[in-house]
């Protein structure tokens, strides 16, 4: 079950404020990092929504993000459609794909579900990789950013775009948190806890799973629109299954099922990647070992572990008061 505790609100506020401050006072490179963090954080929120609360681990969120990025890019760069409807179209495309896969894959569970998402994600990757019209492995360029001159903003300015991206995290977090607190979110957590019982209560579980994936994929689609606008160039690499694996790593490192943990995880992951990159070329071994240690230590992640200690201590304090 999801609770937006004061500690979670506080952590989210601190992380978002730190990102805004880093973008404002850092140079161009800092802003690029903040945008990178924001894209990863939104994607991590979308994955935590289904994996952390619905118990449905997916290995296709990278592909969903890429699909939305391609949808946005094709509509704007190839057909000259206005960026805002194009962004909605990209997000809608991502949501439909996510819902379709979930509708098919929700017949399976556990490792088969993971394999099914992996297969559909790779299918999408292969289709785009092979398509000459979409640029194949060369990717696509010339993608415009939103034109926000009507409210006096210029998103081609890296600082303004970075702050817009951080705003994007806040909006996506808010939507995910509201949905998790709604009856829909509670039902999803119930299905995770005990699916046969929810079915016995009269809940059509596959419809809920499909809807949950549609929502999650729409949020991943938001990340895709940001990703396409960030570098204004996209390539099929966005959709490769290891991207989805990396997002899963971010969610686990931050704290699965805490919603704010993945945001924190994304910030730490990207910063660590750039810091480690200054010393060694071998970033993968660092993140691989970190992941293994996190999972073997109980899999709570950074925020989850902190929360576990704090609630554990306060419970102990309460018990000693009662005794």
């Amino acid at each position: 079950m999801f609770h937006q505790t004061p500690a979670r609100s506080f952590t989210l506020a601190v992380v978002l404020a730190a990102l805004v401050a880093y973008a404002t006072f850092g140079g161009f490179f800092a802003r690029e990092i903040v945008i990178e963090i924001a894209i990863l954080a939104i994607l991590a929120i979308s994955l935590d929504f289904v994996a952390g609360f619905g118990g449905m681990v997916s290995l296709f969120h990278g592909a969903v993000m890429g699909l939305s990025a391609y949808g946005y890019s094709v509509l704007t760069a190839k057909f000259g459609i206005h960026p805002i409807p194009a962004a909605f179209a990209g997000i809608f495309l991502a949501a439909s794909f996510g819902a379709a896969v979930a509708a098919i894959a929700s017949r399976t569970s556990g490792i088969f579900f993971i394999m099914a998402t992996l297969a559909f994600g790779q299918m999408l990757y292969t289709i785009i990789f092979k398509s000459r019209w979409l640029g194949g492995d060369d990717g696509m360029g010339g993608i415009p950013r939103f034109d926000a001159s009507w409210i006096g903003l210029d998103f081609n300015d890296s600082l303004q775009f970075a702050i817009f991206a951080v705003f994007g995290i806040a909006v996506c977090y808010g939507i995910a948190a509201l949905l998790l607190r709604s009856a829909f979110g509670r039902t999803m957590c119930g299905i995770h806890g005990n699916e046969p019982r929810m079915r016995a209560l009269g809940v059509s579980t596959w419809k809920h799973k499909t809807a949950a994936f549609a929502i999650s994929s729409a949020i991943a689609g938001v990340a895709g629109v940001f990703a396409a606008q960030h570098t204004q160039y996209i390539s099929p690499e966005l959709l490769f299954w290891t991207v989805s694996g990396e997002v899963l790593i971010v969610v686990i490192l931050g704290g699965l099922g805490t919603l704010v943990g993945p945001v924190l995880g994304a910030a730490i992951f990207v910063l660590l990647k750039h810091e480690v990159g200054n010393y060694t070329d071998h970033w993968h071994i660092v993140v691989g070992l970190l992941l293994i240690v996190t999972v073997m230590a109980g899999g709570r992640g950074i925020y989850g572990q902190a929360e576990h200690w704090i609630t554990g201590r306060s419970r102990k304090a309460r018990e000693s008061l009662n005794a």
Partner: peptide, 12 residues
């Protein structure tokens, strides 16, 4: 957890 740990091993 199995997928995660063995995914980590791929990187290692």
């Amino acid at each position: 957890n199995q997928v995660l740990v063995t995914f980590g091993l791929i990187f290692v």
